[in-house]
Nucleic acid binder design. Structure first.
Lengths: 227, 227
DNA sequence: GAGACTACGTGTACGGCGTACACTTGTCAA
DNA sequence: TTGACAAGTGTACGCCGTACACGTAGTCTC
């Protein structure tokens, strides 16, 4: 028994920056970014809070590390594909990473300077446009146009996902009918589509790709016009 | 003297929700959202922290109030204009509001449920598309496509603005030349444009309108195709 | 071995935060 | 005059990030 405990204590895996970051990502994934404190993180690692500071400079730096973890999950560019296919695939991969870690976009926005990892991602993105024949100027415009889509999220204003039980939600929208008629009208069609065979109502994935393709098509037309 | 002080004390304007919100906006404008605490806000209002709780339920509700203040600064829809002109003008007005209060977009993103004020804004926006002849489905797509642009910001990844002295910035980019060649290449043309007569290098306003017009043109083509 | 050096985890403490709860104070109707 | 009600106060609690001084165990040199 006591041997087991001692063994357990002795075999305790040492703290590393990577282990700290991984645990922090887990905590944020489970409880949201506001549930991630240095103290809770330390507790999850079975360590005293100050121990973390041997591996990350401070909480700011920890958050930067979290962003890097997420960005590292984005697939590298497709080899041998045309620019549009490659950009599209990469952005959809970024979106998947962001969907896995819903807190990440907000953390990214709160940073003032990009980390080297983020810079490398952007650099590679720029390179993909350039390799596809975009002029520097048009690449510049394209990067701005992509905006947050570049990082794989598109500011879903409604955040349909999750906890709200369907009935409450229906009630909520019903109550809005008089006050916000346009929202209600739109909601009705979404619900209708949902209850028939057409599809899952508001398909976030589809909406994202719809917007993405619109922008990409527009950029392509511009590119060809100036080629 | 003492009369003055007493008079000052007696004439002290009473706390109101509106005064609390206005002061909070000022604080956030000056020091960033992280400089806004209930305690500092109370201090700025020359009042004890707990006094605020007579006028806002808690900090969450205060933040919701701040968003409403910003959204209320957005101009109402243009009367008698075509949908595209009207949407364009409204979104640019939203952008101006967001530029006046740079903390606002991050606060908006941190909210889980939209306030009635935000809902009313979205409702009115939907109504503008509908009045312009968009089908419900296309309106639905359009709202998703606009994404964060709807609220007037477009996730400027680089946040050029401000404090960095030009020299440091140049040095910074120079140092990146080897590591991030594409960023560097882009930076060079921006700097070049800047030092000649072409314009102010990276004109955020232009970039924003470029992206906005691209999306709007794409939507218009879709609309006409299905009309 | 002995002692020093190093890397890593600990313990204590401080100031700031949001806010619960019980209190005084000022105002006005009856 | 009273007494009810609204508005501001004071105290206190538990959370946060983190500075700083302290152990403690492993490694390297003599």
């Amino acid at each position: 028994m006591s041997t087991d405990i001692e063994l357990g204590a002795e075999t305790r895996i040492p703290l590393t920056r990577e282990r700290v970051l991984r645990t922090a990502v887990d905590l944020a994934d489970q409880g949201g970014i506001e549930a991630l404190s240095m103290r809770k993180l330390a507790q999850a690692l079975d360590v005293v809070p100050m121990a973390l500071y041997r591996h990350v400079a401070n909480k700011e730096e920890l958050l930067n590390g979290l962003i890097d973890v997420v960005v590292d999950e984005i697939d590298p560019p497709l080899e041998g594909a045309d620019w549009k296919t490659a950009v599209r695939a990469r952005i959809l991969s970024a979106r998947q990473a962001l969907l896995r870690h819903p807190w990440a976009s907000r953390v990214m926005e709160s940073r003032t300077v990009p980390t080297p990892t983020v810079l490398a991602y952007m650099d590679s993105m720029i390179g993909m446009f350039r390799a596809g024949g975009f002029s520097i100027d048009l690449t510049h415009h394209a990067m701005h146009t992509m905006g947050s889509r570049l990082m794989g999220f598109a500011q879903e204003l409604f955040n349909d996902s999750g906890d709200a039980d369907q009935e409450m939600e229906a009630e909520f929208y019903e109550a809005m009918a008089a006050m916000y008629p346009s929202i209600y009208e739109l909601y009705l069609t979404v619900v209708h589509d949902d209850s028939t065979t057409v599809g899952p109502g508001c398909d976030d994935q589809f909406e994202f790709e719809f917007a993405l393709d619109l922008v990409l098509d527009g950029l392509e037309k511009l590119k060809d016009r100036h080629a």
